[in-house]
């Protein structure tokens, strides 16, 4: 691996039920469809609704050695506990996307780290489905990072969303776009 190659390490975290793992899978699937190397590692086991949940996604041009992420380039946090746990690990020059609907404090981070506060729950509620907050945050992240477009992620959703939820594809697609639009501002 030379240092010129593309290498993005992401941690997505929140509480169980926020669709953390689904957002990670959507990102991983989008990367795979774009021909990138990718790994996705979920936290697993005791993650029930209300508990903590996170996943690590690595996207690269070259085959990925370690799928374990200790210092991510980007972190997406959906609640306060995750902010406290993961924000401090972000690499210098990295990106923090945080769900400002549920996080009211401003994180104390090195000024090299860009912070994007997205009212993900509020935007999702406007769309009529509060559960789509994960896609709002993912859309904002994608727009900011400029790796793949929110629309590319929307195209990969049918692969990662169980068939019985396919009726939510339109609202999730809209959520990705709205997140992207918010990040453009």
């Amino acid at each position: 691996m030379t240092s010129n190659d593309f290498y993005e390490e992401v941690i997505i975290a929140g509480f169980g039920g926020q669709g953390i793992i689904l957002a990670g899978k959507a990102l991983a699937q989008t990367a795979m469809k774009a021909g990138k190397e990718v790994t996705h590692m979920p936290s697993y086991g005791a993650e029930v609704r209300g508990g903590t949940s996170n996943c690590m996604v690595v996207i690269a041009d070259e085959p990925i050695a370690s799928p374990l992420v200790s210092q991510p380039n980007s972190v997406i946090v959906m609640n306060k506990a995750s902010l406290n746990k993961f924000a401090g690990r972000i690499k210098s020059g990295g990106l923090l996307v945080m769900n400002s609907s549920l996080i009211d404090n401003k994180p104390e981070l090195a000024n090299t780290i860009e912070v994007l506060a997205v009212p993900a729950d509020d935007i999702a509620a406007e769309l009529g489905n509060p559960k789509a907050a994960n896609m709002v945050a993912l859309g904002a992240y994608l727009q900011k990072r400029q790796i793949f477009s929110p629309d590319a992620a929307a195209e990969s959703l049918p692969d990662v969303l169980a068939k019985r939820y396919h009726k939510t594809l339109p609202v999730n697609t809209e959520a990705l776009r709205r997140g992207g639009q918010f990040a453009k501002k």
Binding site: M32, E37, T39, M41, Y44, L68
Partner: peptide, 10 residues
């Protein structure tokens, strides 16, 4: 191991 079992890769 649990890592390999749970991890997703192409």
């Amino acid at each position: 191991d649990g890592f390999l079992g749970q991890m997703m890769e192409p």
